[in-house]
Design a protein around this nucleic acid. Structure first.
Length: 501
RNA sequence: GGUUUCGUGGCCGAGUGGCUAGGCAGCGGUCUGCAAAACCGCGUACAGCGGUUCGACUCCGCUCGAAACCUCCA
């Protein structure tokens, strides 16, 4: 087994050994949300993917600085209002200040990502707070001769750039194709070439989000912020840059070009890209209008949803697929995830109970089968191997299911010979399920304590009727609870209950 | 048209040149007052056609099909 982390670098299209530039430090930059709409399932994929990366790097002992930007400026609307900032457009509709919109949706984003147990990054910088730095980088690119000024706007000169460097190396694009194949958009006649992209745009009079610059009152181009903030907080070269596959071109390609042009070298060592979530085989996205917001998932209020799905179900659903695969949404798949997760959590509870009931087993490291090593430590190794192989969370989950089968077998057979495996097994769950995969028990609040008390009471009454073989009463209670979506299970040592089906 | 990626059993999804993925659903059984859970067992797979190979689902080529990107998008 290779105990070292390997990750798939989009730049080389190969799995590479992770060797950070300045160990024990590791830098991670991920393209964050544009805050002009409610967070949907598509936002959850990269957030959870790179949360997994973040958590695993931390677990391996790296001192990680994780930067994820908030885009609150600079994305152009290409359809009806060309040249107008998306946030500004929404603001005009709602008759409020653009920053108020950005603030509102940023807050929503944080709230829902929090529900998904996504760790907050070390730094969450906003594009609007880095206008000065962006202006400086534009000036650097101009000074090096890789940009030109046209009517108050500044454009990146892709043709000039590709005389020295390879524009297209990340996405596999060929420059000649880009020059000829790019669709002609209105208001783009200032460009010398179709493939050129804006570094600074002069604002039209009705454009409300604007800042002064040496060239005009305007706003920065839409690829610039990530280059600027990545370099500012992680250094001129840093380890990992992540994002969705849809950002590969032109966004990340242009980021590489901007850094190369301004700094004389590239800034990113490993490029990581998560795949898309599809709905009926099609990408789920804002512009397609087929997205389901996270709020709708949590409440079940969308016509495509047959029920509500808890945040942990969503998280588990996403982690059950490898991050570089597309993941197709369906109610059936979500329900399977819900049940699978429940099985895992029940298994963990059984494990905890077994350890409490058998204080003698609290000496880890004594394998039941010394010939072949313990099952628990094998699973542990297998989980590390999976994570080291480009963050293969589905394999980790498969291992955890195997652990559950083992736990249940011990529980059923009272196999005392295997009890000493349990502490190690608990450690595997604590590390992989909770710490690295970031699954949590769904929260219990004050109401829950009352419910617990009531349920204890009800089940003790039912137990009495069962002892008296009063099946009518006992079934009446169970059926009534069933209608409230509370499942009762009768075991040898009394009954237990759980919410859900 | 170009670039990138993919096509695995009822559904979702891993993986490998020869040895069980896993989950959900289904069927049979054990257990149980019944049920649920759990456990045991079972079934239908690697789009098609060629090639390389002792042997390919796994490598190569072609065909068919799908998606993303080429335009803001996670």
């Amino acid at each position: 087994m290779d105990a070292r982390l390997r990750l798939y670098n989009t730049l080389s299209r190969k799995k590479e050994l992770f060797e950070p530039l300045n160990p024990p430090f590791a830098g991670l930059y991920v393209c964050g949300p544009t805050v002009y709409g409610d967070p949907h399932l598509g936002h959850a994929r990269p957030a959870i993917t790179f949360d997994l990366v973040f958590r695993y790097l931390l677990h391996l002992g790296y001192k990680v600085r994780y930067v994820r930007n908030i885009t609150d400026v600079g994305h152009l609307e290409a359809d009806l209002d060309e040249g107008e900032d998306k946030i500004a457009k929404k603001a005009r509709i709602d008759q409020v200040e653009p920053m108020e919109i950005a603030q509102y949706y940023a807050d929503r984003y944080f709230t829902f990502m929090g529900a998904l147990n996504v760790k907050r990054p070390s730094i969450e910088p906003r594009a609007s707070g880095h206008i000065i730095e962006q202006i400086r980088m534009i000036q650097q690119i101009l000074d090096k001769g890789f940009a030109y000024i046209e009517n108050g706007s500044v454009y990146f000169d892709v043709k000039k750039y590709s005389e020295f460097y390879d524009y297209g190396k990340l996405s596999g694009r060929i420059l000649e194709d880009l020059m000829t194949n790019t669709r002609t958009l209105e208001g783009q006649e200032e460009k010398h070439n179709q493939a050129d992209f804006a570094l600074w745009k002069r604002a039209q009079p009705e454009h409300i989000m604007r800042w002064p610059s040496p060239w005009s009152d305007g706003f920065p181009g839409w690829h610039l912020e990530c280059s600027v903030m990545g370099v500012k907080y992680l250094g001129e070269t840093f380890d990992i840059h992540g994002g969705g596959m849809d950002l590969l071109f032109p966004h990340h390609e242009s980021e590489i070009a901007q850094c190369q042009a301004a700094l004389g070298h590239e800034s990113v060592k490993y490029w990581l890209h998560n795949n898309m979530i599809t709905i009926n085989g099609q990408k789920m996205g804002k512009s397609l209008g087929n997205f389901i917001t996270l709020e709708e998932f949590f409440t079940g209020s969308h016509k495509e949803l047959s029920q509500a799905y808890s945040p942990m179900t969503i998280r588990f659903f996403i982690l059950q697929a490898h991050y570089r695969s597309t993941l197709d949404f369906s109610n059936e798949a979500l329900q399977a995830a819900e049940k699978g997760l429940k099985k895992l959590m029940t298994g963990y509870e059984t494990l905890t109970r077994l350890i409490e009931a058998n204080p003698g087993c609290e000496q880890p490291g004594r394998p039941a089968d010394p010939e072949n090593g313990s099952i628990a430590s094998k699973l542990n190794e297998s989980c590390y191997a999976a994570m080291n192989d480009d963050f293969n969370s589905p394999i980790v989950i498969a291992n955890l299911f195997e652990a559950v089968r083992f736990i249940n077998a011990v529980n059923d057979n009272n196999d005392t010979g295997s009890l000493q495996e349990l502490p190690t097994l608990k450690n595997v769950f604590d590390v992989f399920l909770f710490e690295i995969l970031g699954i949590t028990k769904e929260t219990e609040d004050g109401q829950q304590l009352i419910v617990n008390g009531l349920m204890d009471l009800i089940l003790s009454i039912r137990q009495k009727s069962r002892i008296n073989k009063d099946w009518g009463t006992s079934d009446q209670i169970r059926d009534a609870l069933q209608k409230l979506r509370i499942a009762v299970k009768d075991g040898k040592e009394g009954s237990t209950w759980s919410p859900g089906n």
